[in-house]
Design a protein around this nucleic acid. Sequence first.
DNA 1: AACGTCACGGTTGAA
DNA 2: CATTCAACCGTGACG
Length: 839
Amino acid sequence: MAHTPVLSTINDYNSATVTPINVSMIQETISDDIIDKRKTTEELSTEILIKSENDTTASHWIKDQNNNNNQTQYEQKQQQEVERFNHEIQDDDDELDEKKLHITSTTDEQQLQVDNDSNTNNKNRFCSSSINQLGGEFINGRPLPSDTREKIVKLAEQGVRPCEISRQLSVSHGCVSKILKRFRLFGTTAPGLIGGSKPKVATPEVVRRIREYKLNNPQIFAWQIRESLQKEGICSTEKLPSVSSINRIVRSNRRIVVNPDGTINEVDSDFDLYDSDDENSAKSERANASSPSSGSVGSSPRAGNIRHRGDCRCDSCVKKYKFSPCNNKSTNGEIVDGIHASELENDNKSPYNHQLLDESNLNSIDLDFYSTTNKIFENEPGELNLKAPPPAHCRTKLSSIFTSSHDHPLDLSITTTNHNHKQRKKQLKHNPLSDTFQNEPLNLCSESKKRPTNDIISSPSSKRSSTNIPNNLTDKLQTHLLSDNISLHQQQQQPPATSLPTFLHSVFAQNSSHPVFLPFWNPLLDAQQHQQLFQQLQQHYSQHHHQKDEHLFEDERIHICLNFKKVYFFFIHSLSLEAVHDMETTHSLSLSSHPTMLHINTIQNSKKRSTREILSTAEVNNMNKWSSQQNVINLQQSAENYFLNEHIFSDLTITVNGGRVFVDKSLLAAASPILQNHFQENPSVTNIDLIDIHLDQMLVLLKFLYPQFDCTLTRENVSFLVEMSERFKLNILHIMCRNFIIYYLSKVRGVNDDKYLNKKNYRQGTQVNAQRETGLFLSWLCVYFDSDNMRIIEPLMNVIKQCSIECLKTTIDLNGSVSWKMQAAIYKARAQYLERTFI
DNA sequence: AACGTCACGGTTGAA
DNA sequence: CATTCAACCGTGACG
């Protein structure tokens, strides 16, 4: 909180409300100003902002800086703020006066851009914002600023619970819930497109025909067109456009042309309305220009034609609505980029970023996690060009969420659609990239408000199920695994197929550039399905094994291990892993939304928990390889017996610390490209030494690799397993471990070691004992620190930074593998945490 | 306590 | 050009 405050009199809402500056803000400002010993006049004049980074609305305050073009309004507002400022802090010292002068003087120095848009951009200037129960500021009827929306999603991705997000950002939990739901469904944080209505009669087809008539016969009258439309049966009598409508369509020259490169050209218009022909792109574009969440770049300026409404500043409107007269003349039309420009400017010039580094004693070390993290979500200038609307949620890349997504508010209106929710979901499921879907508006309005439409039949259950659209992994894998429209459920009712299961053919048909191990256990299948699959494979094998045609299996890329009388299968399938990766990177929501990736055994005993409970090992939800302990296929046997004794097909021994284990080369090779290479290079090898690994640890790893054994990730073994996954490139294991850690961290609400702990912040949730857990967290951080995986580093740091310095120091001393870089990063994070929380 | 839903009072903008 | 109205918004109560 000790970062240079910036003074802003504007907020991000299109409506530039007279936002009250609260006392604490001012106080922060003053104290910071004093502490900071004076920013230069230039700095202040360029900033005109007051806000700290901790204030969630900071950036949206900043964003509209350049958008407020009406100098008079601006000055008035500034004046109001200054007056308020003066009033509230009149007891302060001379430095304050100096600052006040600063602010007033900078007002005059502002190079305010003014253009025809000024009226538009100053909409609702006089609307008052409200404060919700949590103390958050909002404007009734208007969307939250885009950065707040993004923050909500970002926090949710980090595993922060919605209620926590709600408190943190001072946004109602209903709103958080809604935004997250929309993000899950549509992959965007953008608000919907507000206002307007779909053409009731001037449908795209009608508009096209009208234009055709006019093109073919420029002299044609509107009433003639109208008659022709009726004659040709293009419109029914009741839906025949009026002459004025036709005239409007004819007069409307405006075209939104989306070029192949994604840029948008707009042909001048003599009319403010958009062609219905270009309904979707036009509406999107229009919204883009007007939406607070998207007033960004690449959008075309609004036409100079201002509709005379309550927010208009023309003389008549000013008279009518008793607004003060507008003295401004438009000067240029470049305002559209204003938001972007200010954002960039802020990014570049904001003292906050620099100060982060400057304030730290470690400023010489380039280890700013926060800036690094932010970069993940930052838009590169080049990316800010208008892009095609975001595809369906399952294809959404993280980067696009914060670029194109919110550039295009959702059009959720209903009139142009002929599909109901289910159909839409179906379409989304089957072809997420379908043009039809992209162009088709979505409708989220409540049933009761919907215009009665025969097409739209929605039951509460379907509404409910709308949140359960399968995630990308499920989608992609199911498509492949359940090819030929044969679901496993159907297969269960049929006698087991005697040929190779059809889905395997489909799987093998995919080109695989590199073999990747995916155990017979598949996260998408439940135990019963596993059983089914197993039986099919067993049957297949029993039919073919007598042929002794090993190549058959090689070709089918099934590796078969014979173990006594049982047959175990696992297949190599790179597609699955790609799908997993795809899902991981594109759909990085909280772990709880990854039910197919990992089964999380929920705590059976759901007794009410104490709010200051210590997180115990037993309570950490373990992640089990099998979906249900009760339904595990009956393949269990003692792993110790199996691996410690030579078995018929074991062709390799591994010498580990404490003994040796008997394993199968083929399985290990399939699991690990490292081992595969090793075996290829040394075909005759019968023993390898891995004496740095303890026997118990090796058994855990082998239990994961072998399909017949159960392996549960726990806080104790996850560190070792993640290390092994790195070492032997066991990707699935790596992902599972990472998810476990993220999940584990998401359970941690506070660290109770901290003597400065602000109990209010952690009145809910689980607390961990820092003394006990810090070592664990540090060991995890050691594993991930050098990677760029901020998704795990960030939550780790978020927890670690809550541990006291003494505790951190002790643990770091004990753990010899903590690099100096890591130490620096940890101490820095701690310092920033303390600074923000308690100063 | 957490969270999904929805009525409500509001804004918006095409028709 | 004023009005209408269906879309959207976030809040906050409810279950």
